[in-house]
Design a protein around this nucleic acid. Structure first.
Lengths: 201, 201
DNA sequence: CAAGTAATGTACACATGTGTACAATATATG
DNA sequence: CATATATTGTACACATGTGTACATTACTTG
């Protein structure tokens, strides 16, 4: 019942995602976003409530397209370590390919907002916490012979997260795939995740 | 000759540094900064020209207090690898200690500005490039027996930079020193930089 | 087709922000 | 102490930004 929306919500969230991704959250005003969507601020508030709540919606949508998400789809019956390496490699490709050098929306937002925005810090922190938990689970599953203690795995999971963050930021100024991937591969190999047999170039 | 400044320039740059550090560059308006300094915008433009040029001044000042700077002060006659580890350890302490979770101004700014701000991207990119060059130099100097090729060293230098970036961002949500440092130590150890003999806790 | 309702638009009343021209002020040096 | 000059303040003319109250639209269901 009632009037139809003048815009497609999914499409709107998607374009707002790209705007925030390339300009940063703080740089996206309700005015600018509304104008981009072709609606009035009044409609904006009516439909989305606030920028904060829209951003939380954006974050959920982003996650589906994010580097992080690929880790969720790794089949635990497969060669887990190799799959992890493949995801890292894909991230290198994505970062080097993006001419806008946008980096990763989630990581960008963490740096921009965690510690200063009380509403958005919790969802951002918990997103990244989920990735850490995911890494732990994958490393545990790959730990066939139980060679590593829980402590080892926790440390290694955080080391992988640090690497993930690092390459997403380095990709902003290192635009040579070979350079980015070979150092990522070295890190993965050092941590015992990459195996030279994988032969990934 | 002429009238005296109503403020101390060094002190002003320092407080602007802290403001940008905690709120981000884009969130610091000329209006807000001028009011903080107790001067009019007119005086601001007269003294600093623009926010961009002030920020470049801030960056130079920050570098002196930055984690990066410590790498410049490593004596190449000493145990270079151990010194590198000590700097990384100090960064872990600094990040965990900071209750504001500000992270590293330089890394924050890179994420915020590289790719979108044409004036500030170059100085930011070259700052981080200097760190990378520094890592290469240190690793070369530590490469006593010439075991590693130039290629190896380039990859390892970038791996160290990725790690540096990673912990500076992770420090935003990981507030437990033991957790942050032990995983950093693991990464350093994997890369052959940390040696268990160092016995750092 | 009428009525209820959801979405949209208009308008208000501010606050914040930019950059500059011109006037006022203070100070060091001749 | 007068003057040149660096610094500061005032005022303008905008642009952008926020959030809401109230009126207006258009659509759907009974």
């Amino acid at each position: 019942m009632g009037r139809n929306k003048a815009f497609n919500r999914d499409q709107a969230v998607d374009s707002v995602m790209h705007l925030i991704w390339s300009q940063g959250y703080q740089n996206c005003s309700v005015k600018a976003v509304s104008e981009m969507l072709g609606i009035t601020r009044s409609s904006f508030y009516h439909s989305f409530g606030s920028m904060e709540s829209l951003f939380i919606e954006v974050l959920k949508r982003y996650y589906i397209h994010s580097p992080f998400c690929a880790f969720d789809q790794i089949n635990e019956q497969s060669d887990i370590l190799k799959e992890i390496c493949t995801v890292f490699q894909n991230i290198c490709v994505a970062r080097v390919t993006d001419k806008e050098a946008k980096g990763c929306l989630m990581i960008n937002s963490i740096i921009e907002l965690v510690g200063s925005n009380d509403i958005l810090s919790p969802p951002l922190s918990s997103s990244v916490d989920a990735v850490l938990t995911r890494f732990k689970r994958l490393l545990n599953a790959a730990n066939m012979h139980g060679n590593f203690s829980d402590n080892d795995i926790d440390q290694k999971a955080l080391a992988l997260l640090n690497l993930l963050i690092g390459i997403n930021v380095s990709g902003k100024f290192i635009k040579d795939y070979e350079q980015l991937w070979s150092s990522t591969r070295l890190s993965l190999q050092s941590l015992g995740v990459y195996n030279t047999d994988y032969n990934m170039t």
